[in-house]
Simulated assay, not measured.
Amino acid sequence: MTLVVAWAGFDDKSRHRRKVSSLYIAADSRISWDGTARYDGHQKVFASVKHPEIFGFCGDVTFCNMAISQILTKIDSNILFSSEESNKADIIAAEISQMVREYPSANNLRNSQIIYGTRIATQFHFFLFEFKSREVLLSEWPISEERGRKIYFGGSGRDSFNDNWINVDHEKDENHMTTRNVYHCVARTIEQCADSQVGGVPQLVGLYRVGAGRQFGIVKDGTCYFGGLPCKDLPNLTNLEWRNDNFERVDVNTGNLMPGAHPQPMR
């Protein structure tokens, strides 16, 4: 199964007029069979390389991965919609619905969810796709400070994540109401989760006020990972932005903080 979490970042320069400045989706990297065999390198979060679109999922690995991959290919080929269209989620829902109608195991999708973050003009939006028999249910979730910046968490690791979140979601925590606080909770949950179906190295995608979606590399225990898999021998690793368990921007070659990056220690 999975742990997948979505959250927003805010521009705090003016505490009286906070605005959403970023949107993130993170997940673990493990898939398993029969509760015993497992693989810690399966992609669960996705970002368009041309447009402001990010995705994640929990549940049926085969269907969700297939659906997101096909939709992203159409998005990046510029044949599905333009970045500024206001009904992008409806278009995606229609695409998923068509796939569900042809999917032999559609009745097994009831515990599956696909999440979608986008930017339309200057506004960020977050959507949830759920499945009821062969019907796709679409809902938009609000992004607001009142939700504590955490928007959504799902998968078999959700209860473990929620327990960790309760422990840190208070004003006495130095990281309270920060984007790093959510990521710290994700990293801690993946590492400590009692559910053997959750594990591996975190995966992370993000969306900012300008540009397309971003896929981040992760540096953990001195090793660099992309999509849950070690990738130290790839030739152009500096083309990615890299984060560690503290959500700090780091140099992929040294593991040290990037120039100008602020320490964000996990409490």
Rank of each mutant, 00 (worst) to 15 (best):
169 D>H: 15
21 S>F: 02
27 A>W: 04
209 R>L: 12
186 V>Y: 01
172 K>A: 15
197 Q>G: 06
155 G>H: 05
36 T>A: 03
265 P>V: 03
32 S>L: 07
124 F>T: 10
80 L>T: 01
24 Y>G: 03
86 S>D: 13
3 L>W: 02
12 D>M: 09
3 L>H: 03
22 S>M: 08
259 P>D: 09
222 G>T: 02
194 A>E: 15
66 M>D: 14
251 D>W: 01
228 G>N: 03
36 T>S: 11
147 R>W: 03
191 E>V: 01
93 A>P: 01
89 A>G: 05
56 G>V: 04
83 S>K: 15
165 W>L: 07
173 D>Y: 13
182 V>R: 01
264 Q>D: 11
1 M>S: 09
233 D>E: 11
261 A>H: 07
175 N>T: 12
220 K>F: 08
24 Y>N: 09
54 I>K: 06
3 L>S: 05
153 F>D: 10
225 Y>K: 03
22 S>N: 13
253 N>C: 06
35 G>S: 11
4 V>D: 00
61 V>C: 11
164 N>E: 12
81 F>H: 11
152 Y>K: 01
65 N>W: 09
39 Y>T: 03
219 V>L: 13
254 T>R: 02
130 E>P: 00
196 S>Y: 08
236 N>F: 06
64 C>V: 01
243 R>I: 12
153 F>H: 14
100 V>Y: 13
80 L>H: 05
41 G>Q: 07
224 C>G: 02
214 R>W: 09
129 F>P: 02
38 R>Y: 15
213 G>Y: 08
159 D>S: 12
37 A>L: 14
163 D>N: 12
148 G>E: 06
25 I>A: 06
103 Y>P: 02
9 G>R: 11
232 K>N: 11
51 H>K: 15
100 V>M: 14
117 G>W: 07
257 L>Q: 08
87 N>I: 10
70 Q>E: 15
92 I>N: 02
234 L>D: 10
255 G>H: 00
107 N>L: 14
120 I>C: 13
182 V>M: 06
34 D>W: 08
157 G>I: 02
222 G>E: 02
65 N>P: 02
75 I>L: 08
191 E>K: 10
50 K>S: 13
229 L>E: 11
81 F>D: 12
16 H>E: 09
80 L>F: 05
223 T>E: 10
149 R>A: 07
51 H>D: 12
62 T>L: 13
52 P>C: 08
87 N>L: 09
153 F>S: 14
105 S>I: 04
20 V>I: 15
9 G>H: 11
31 I>M: 09
188 R>Q: 14
114 I>R: 00
198 V>M: 04
44 K>C: 01
259 P>Q: 07
139 S>Y: 02
206 G>R: 08
171 E>L: 13
130 E>R: 13
217 G>E: 04
209 R>A: 11
196 S>A: 12
117 G>D: 09
75 I>W: 03
247 F>Y: 15
123 Q>V: 14
29 S>M: 03
154 G>D: 01
149 R>G: 05
44 K>L: 06
218 I>V: 14
219 V>G: 02
263 P>R: 04
81 F>Q: 10
204 L>R: 03
53 E>T: 10
183 Y>T: 01
32 S>N: 10
179 T>L: 13
50 K>L: 10
183 Y>W: 06
87 N>C: 10
